[in-house]
Design a protein around this nucleic acid. Structure first.
Lengths: 251, 251
DNA sequence: TTCCATTTGTTCGTATGTATA
DNA sequence: TTATACATACGAACAAATGGA
């Protein structure tokens, strides 16, 4: 909660700007957490010792620059941290981490060899007509985080005899990209991504730490191929829409 | 409802596949409407003159390819029609219409000249640093349909003195692309699209005919520029996620 | 379903300081 | 100096949305 040391306001700078700066600093310091509700306008007005209009002017500004979310009849809330995920031909989680300069992690939730026939998404996969018809695939499920924020649940399916060893590699602590390189897949590119949206199931909400029941998730189905055009990986990645935006930038 | 002319099944092709094709055709012809409930498995079995297992195999396949939704204890329902929207450097609604071979329409909901200052999204717009700083913009809101299905609500903001006349042009029945061409904007391309997701507000649900309260929408913010790199249009487009998937295909 | 308390949104009015012609 | 316009700040009242009893 906010504790205002009722200092007199500096002259020469408008009061509402000083309040904007103050609240922004409290957010940056972590004193105010993403999603947290601010006191009501009336309460803030008396805490800061100003008129409600002055508080409103400050809150409007903070909302305009994306630090707050104001909801009619409910209150003002500290905006969630948002990570822009770039749709690219060569998507790499490590690039994303670098962009936001936070400790990224990719925890393996599950890894197993699965018979092709058991895949519920098999008909969709076959329709792309790029994946080799091996009897088994390597399935790896990972939870991606940027800093403390869970940002993705990825279900990777790797096609090809050599890639089945990936499951072991990962349990030895090797990363996916590293293991692929080891196994002769140095470069792979995106053929297609199909994006849909839905509300999360219970497990997804829990893993992605989605508080608000009405926050949707993105569901991206990706087809990745090697330089010869052979399907290497089919992945289904779930992103929490409250924390991740997808960005398309041609060229 | 389905009326099966109990023809003998073609040899050489499995019966369940023939049933899949038959049901798929009925959906395509419009004989079965999106959301409609199919007869029970037992009823279908006797109608098609096959065992219930054969029907089940066919229904499983139809669900796997996304044409049906099977709900335990309720029945099978024709899946909503899904339109894939391609993220492209030169997006045109007309291309989308062509792809699905349906009568497309773009109804103008509202068109007006608006002072720049009154735009709630102004701070975000300015951050792109490509839009000229005219005092007014032309705002056009359109409802896009493919066949009978509403697929988009677009709020276009056009920047530049010459483009203010667009508002009049549209009320005369001219299309956006045509009017732009008239006004010297022959070619414009996408600089960036930012995609988020949320649940629709009441008005959006109504316009987009979204039945299910928990069906999310895509919100795409697009920045379009001309060949000189000057910002022409900032648009916010809403797609119903139950009916539209976004597709990214590099190259 | 209705009612009520809380909270934000909007619109009046008033007063003051500052920049500009 | 004067007049004007503008942004800032305060006060009060009511409208509209939300959530819980």
């Amino acid at each position: 909660m906010i504790d205002v040391s009722k200092a007199p306001y500096a002259p020469g700078i408008t009061v509402w700007r000083q309040i904007v700066d103050d609240i922004q600093q409290r957010i940056d310091k972590g004193e105010l957490q993403p999603g947290e509700k601010l006191p009501s306008e009336g309460a803030l007005a008396s805490m800061y010792g100003v008129n409600r209009h002055t508080i409103r002017r400050a809150l409007q500004e903070l909302a305009a620059i994306g630090r707050l979310r104001i909801e009619h009849g409910r209150g003002s809330f500290v905006a969630a941290t948002v990570f822009d995920y770039q749709l690219e031909e060569r998507p790499r989680f490590s690039e994303w981490v670098k962009k936001y300069n936070r400790p990224g992690s990719s925890e393996v939730l599950e890894a197993a060899i699965i018979p092709l026939q058991d895949l519920p998404e098999l008909p969709r996969i076959l329709r792309y007509e790029v994946f080799p018809n091996y009897p088994n695939v390597a399935m790896v499920e990972t939870l991606g985080k940027l800093g403390e924020h869970p940002v993705s649940i990825a279900r990777h399916l790797f096609f090809g005899e050599r890639l089945l060893g990936l499951v072991d590699d990962l349990q030895k602590g090797l990363g996916i990209t590293a293991s692929l390189k080891e196994r002769g897949v140095g470069d792979y590119t995106r053929l297609k991504s199909t994006i849909s949206a839905a509300l999360p199931k219970a497990r997804e909400r829990q893993l992605l730490a989605i508080d608000n029941k009405s926050d949707p998730i993105f569901i991206c189905e990706n087809v990745n191929i090697n330089q010869e055009g052979v399907g290497i990986e089919f992945s289904t990645v779930i992103y929490p829409a409250s924390r991740v935006r997808l960005v398309y930038e041609p060229g």
